[in-house]
C-alpha cells in the first residue's frame, strides 16, 4: 500500500458521565500522496473527531480503537515523543475556529516562528524570515508588518490564513483542514481554497478537507467521503459522488448544495435529526429519516460495499437510482 495515510476501522467514543458517545463508528480511509480528500456530513457526524484522533489531539475523555498508519508508521502505538515530531512537522492541522485557535497573548509572527523553530531548529532570526515568507504564501498583505499583529487585530479570514501558514510552516506531507472556510464570507472562502490548491500544486501536499459545504469539496477535492452518524455512508471520486450518488443521505445533501442567498440550508439538508450517538440501534442509523427505507433497514445495519452500477462505495440496503438531472444542479 503506498497511501500516505491509512485509517482502518477507526472508532472514537467520548465518556460523558454514565453515557458513552460513539462519535466515530469504524471508518476506513486511504489518502495517497498529493491527493485531496473531502469529508462531508452534517454537524456532529464525527468529521472532526476522526481527524483529531489521527493527530491524537482528542480530549482526554476520548477513547480510540483501530489503526492509523501514516507513511508506514502506526500512530496509535507511537510514543508521545514520536507524535510530537509528527504534529506540526509531518502533519499540519488547521482547526475549525480561527477566532479561538490562536493564542491571544502572542503576536502571530512569534506563533508561526515557534512552529518553525520547534521542527527545523533554526535561529529566531531565520524562523522570523521564514514566517514572513509564509505570510506571503497565504496572501496576507504587508507580511512583515503583519508579523507583529496580535490575533485580535486581525479579521477571521486573516486569522485563518495565519492558521494555514502555521500548519504548512514545516512543509508537512499531510494537511488536515477542518472547515477552513466555514467562518468566512464567500470571496475570502474562494481565496483560501485557492491557497490550498496552490499548495498541492507546489508542494505535492496531501490534504484532508472537512466541511459540510459540498461546494467547497466540488471545487477542490479528488475524492469525497460522506459521513453520517460516525460512519462513512458513501465514498468515491468527486465526480462520481456528485453525479451518481445513490445513498439517500448523499442525495439529500446534494439536493441542497449551498446557494449564496440561503447559506443556512447547508446545515439542515434533510428532514429530521441525526440519531443520538449514545444509543445503539440495530438497523441503519439513517433509517428513521430515510424516504427509501425498507424493512431490512430497521433490523440490520448495512456495510460499505462497492457498487457495480456507479463505481462508488455505498452503505445502503436500498440505494436510489443514479439520477441524470443531478448534474444540472451543480
Amino acid at each position: 500500500m503506498n497511501s500516505l495515510l491509512s485509517i482502518k476501522d477507526l472508532h472514537v467514543s467520548f465518556g460523558l458521565g454514565l453515557e458513552t458517545v460513539d462519535a466515530v463508528r469504524g471508518i476506513n480511509l486511504e489518502i495517497a500522496r498529493g491527493e485531496i480528500v473531502g469529508i462531508v456530513g452534517e454537524s456532529g457526524s464525527g468529521k472532526s473527531a476522526s481527524m483529531l484522533s489521527v493527530m491524537r489531539l482528542l480530549a482526554t475523555t476520548a477513547t480510540t480503537r483501530g489503526t492509523v498508519h501514516f507513511a508506514g508508521k502506526e500512530l496509535f502505538s507511537a510514543s508521545s515523543k514520536e507524535m510530537r515530531g509528527i504534529r506540526g512537522g509531518k502533519i499540519g492541522m488547521i482547526f475549525q475556529d480561527p477566532m479561538t485557535s490562536l493564542n491571544p497573548s502572542f503576536r502571530i509572527g512569534s506563533q508561526i516562528a515557534e512552529a518553525i523553530i520547534r521542527h527545523q531548529h533554526v535561529s529566531t532570526k531565520i524562523a522570523v524570515s521564514k514566517a514572513t515568507d509564509l505570510l506571503e504564501v497565504v496572501s496576507i498583505p504587508r507580511p512583515s508588518e503583519s508579523m507583529s499583529l496580535f490575533p485580535h487585530e486581525m479579521s477571521g479570514g486573516m486569522k485563518q490564513r495565519v492558521m494555514i501558514a502555521m500548519a504548512i510552516a514545516n512543509d508537512p506531507e499531510l494537511l488536515i483542514a477542518d472547515e477552513p472556510t466555514t467562518a468566512l464570507d464567500v470571496t475570502i472562502q474562494a481565496q483560501i481554497l485557492e491557497v490550498l490548491k496552490g499548495l498541492r500544486e507546489t508542494r505535492n501536499l496531501s490534504i484532508v478537507i472537512i466541511t459540510h459545504d459540498l461546494g467547497v469539496v466540488a471545487g477542490l477535492a479528488d475524492s469525497v467521503n460522506v459521513m453520517y452518524a460516525g460512519e462513512i455512508v458513501e465514498s468515491g471520486d468527486v465526480e462520481g459522488v456528485f453525479y451518481k450518488a445513490t445513498h439517500p443521505y448523499s442525495r439529500g445533501l446534494l439536493s441542497c448544495v449551498p446557494r449564496l442567498d440561503i447559506r443556512e440550508s447547508a446545515l439542515h439538508p434533510i428532514g429530521g435529526d441525526p440519531p443520538k450517538l449514545s444509543e445503539k440501534t440495530p438497523g441503519c442509523s439513517f433509517q428513521p429519516r430515510c424516504k427509501n427505507a425498507i424493512d431490512l433497514c430497521e433490523t440490520t445495519s448495512p456495510t460499505l460495499r462497492s457498487s457495480t452500477v456507479t463505481g462508488l462505495k455505498v452503505s445502503c440496503h436500498n440505494p436510489m437510482e443514479p439520477s441524470p438531472q443531478m448534474s444540472e444542479s451543480i
Binding site: R84, G92, T100, S101, M166
Partner: peptide
C-alpha cells in the same frame, strides 16, 4: 482551542 493549536505544533 489555542492550547490544542500549540499541541498541534508538536
Amino acid at each position: 482551542d489555542y492550547v490544542r493549536t500549540a499541541r498541534a505544533k508538536g
